[in-house]
Design a protein around this nucleic acid. Structure first.
Length: 475
RNA sequence: GGUGCCGUACCCAAGUGGUAAGGGACAGGUCUGCAAAACCUCUAUGCACCGGUUCGAAUCCGGUCGGCACCUCCA
């Protein structure tokens, strides 16, 4: 399978070639665990999951590393603003470590529900402070740092390629009216590697360092941990597009300044999910979580389907109408799969026709992860009368290795409906009697009563079933 | 103010020079006492608008209008 992908560094779709044959080292920027992940965050993890699954489908072994940012970070990049962990701690009255643990668990519960494969290594920032200090020391030895006002800063003027990823024009940025520039900085774009003398009361997360007791800047963890687990040069680094101008730009500077080597070969960024009020953001307060979606009656797979319906490099507009659309599509898909399972076993070998669909599918996913196109290929397969059921099933299972709906796990038997209350059962019996007597007026009256009580009736050859109308989970 | 992206049917959304994927919704049909489910069929001579290049443009170029993102913590 051919795989090519858009590299933010070159702004082009490039053929993918890992450093080692058949082995891919991939680092994904993980969650900050001071709050729940919102569905916009989760869109990025779905995209990264599709990326990983596509690489694995293509035959690569993928070493997937992700950080968990449990160190408090400031609400801006200077030495002011508010520590978000601390803020959350204050608001909830919990210990900062407890906050981190709580939201880390919540994060993985969400990603599990979305069938996002867990990274091989999920590393906590707080457990790698020593690695960060070592990296800062290395930068210090190389003359890339300076101390001022108690903090250690990275000097971007010691790294000529600074801003290459984001194509920053430093002259223009410098002349731009930036408010509240940290007076300690020699260059406004310099960033902090290590903070000391925290100005925050009750600062709970502090570590000793050669520069004093304090805590790391918010970019250093990704450099330190990615290099620890993946080496000083690795294949893929991904995250949301918002990371391009600051976070990833600074990570490159400190990593490459420290090692003198190219750090990452492919930068892959996912676009934002937008709500009708613009992008979703943790710090703006209100945001939608997966939990809210589930409470409203959506299956997590509905959201996964929704995400797959748009290309990862395009902004995707969230709306309830779109969610309903995705839910219906996903249910239709699952229903078809159940039907196929009841009729056939997956074929051991694919026919030429079935293989053609799989080839198209992998071609489309291989071309910069065109998941919407892959979904279309899947539907075309399902609708093709020339492909027999067993082959459809086998082909679907192959596609599902990337799509991640876990189609093989869908129960092929019709679920036992929870029985309705006794008074409803009595009404149903009465209706059945009316039907037998061909008193359809009475039967329809009874249908109306039962439906009015919140139940949906379905007459099947095997009898009448009732389902609670508001229970819309699992089609 | 600077930078970049986008505008495709009722909705979502692929397609980036060769004659408009897919899903949802709607409608019609088969089936059914009715309803549901299922299956089938149908929905853009046209891709914001105007002009240009080309044998050929949704795709390239110029302009106009509209929407969005980033430049500040954010996936």
């Amino acid at each position: 399978m051919v795989f090519s992908v858009y590299n933010t560094m070159t702004r082009r779709v490039e053929p993918f070639e890992p450093i080692a044959k058949d082995f891919v080292r991939m680092y994904c920027c993980g969650p900050t665990v001071y709050n729940f992940a919102h569905i916009g965050n989760l869109r990025t993890y779905v995209f990264e999951d599709v990326l990983r699954r596509t690489l694995e489908f293509a035959g690569y072994r993928v070493r997937h590393v992700m950080n968990v940012t449990d160190v408090g970070h400031l609400t801006d990049d200077g030495d002011d603003g508010e520590d978000k962990m601390l803020k959350s701690s204050k608001e909830t009255g919990r210990d900062v470590y407890e906050i981190a643990r709580l939201y880390t668990e919540a994060f993985f519960a969400d990603t599990d529900a979305l069938h996002i494969l867990r990274p091989e290594t999920a590393c906590r920032a707080t457990e790698h402070i020593g690695d960060m200090i070592a990296l800062i020391k290395r930068l210090e030895e190389g003359g890339h740092t300076y101390q001022a006002g108690g903090n250690v800063y990275f000097s971007i003027d010691t790294f000529p390629q600074y801003g290459e990823l984001a194509r920053l024009n430093l002259d223009e940025l410098r002349s731009g009216a930036r408010i509240d520039v940290d007076v300690n900085k020699r260059n406004p774009k310099d960033f902090t590697l290590w903070f000391t003398n925290s100005k925050f009361e009750n600062q709970a997360m502090l570590w000793d360092s050669p520069w004093g007791r304090g805590y790391p800047g918010w970019h250093i963890e990704c450099s330190a941990m990615s290099m620890k687990y993946l080496g000083e040069t690795f294949d893929i680094h991904c995250g949301g597009i918002d990371h391009i101008p600051v976070h990833h730009t600074n990570e490159i500077a400190q990593s490459e300044a420290a090692t003198g080597k190219p750090w990452v070969r492919y930068w892959i960024h996912g676009e934002f999910l937008l709500s009708d009020k613009g992008k979703m953001s943790k710090s703006k307060g209100e945001f939608l979580t997966l939990h809210v979606l589930v409470k409203k009656g959506y299956d997590p797979m509905d959201y996964r389907y929704f995400c797959l319906g748009g290309h990862y490099r395009s902004q995707l507009q969230f709306s309830w109408q779109s969610m309903d659309s995705a839910r219906n599509a996903r249910r239709n898909l699952f229903d078809r799969v159940v039907e196929l399972k009841q009729k056939a076993k997956p074929a051991a070998v694919l026919s030429v026709e079935a293989q053609r669909y799989l080839d198209l599918f992998t071609e489309h996913l291989g071309a910069d992860l065109n998941a919407p196109r892959g979904l279309a290929d899947m539907w075309n397969l399902l609708k093709d009368p020339t492909v027999v059921d067993g082959e459809k099933l086998a082909c679907l299972y192959q596609m599902d290795r990337i799509l991640g709906f876990n189609l093989e796990d869908i129960p092929s038997e019709i679920k036992e409906e929870p029985s309705a209350p006794e008074e409803i059962q009595l009404l149903l019996e009465e209706r059945l009697k009316a039907k037998r007597e061909k008193n359809y007026t009475r039967a329809d009256e009874l249908r109306a009563i039962v439906e009015g009580a919140g139940y949906q009736l379905k007459d099947t050859p095997n009898g009448t079933t009732v389902t609670k109308s508001c229970n819309q989970n699992q089609g």
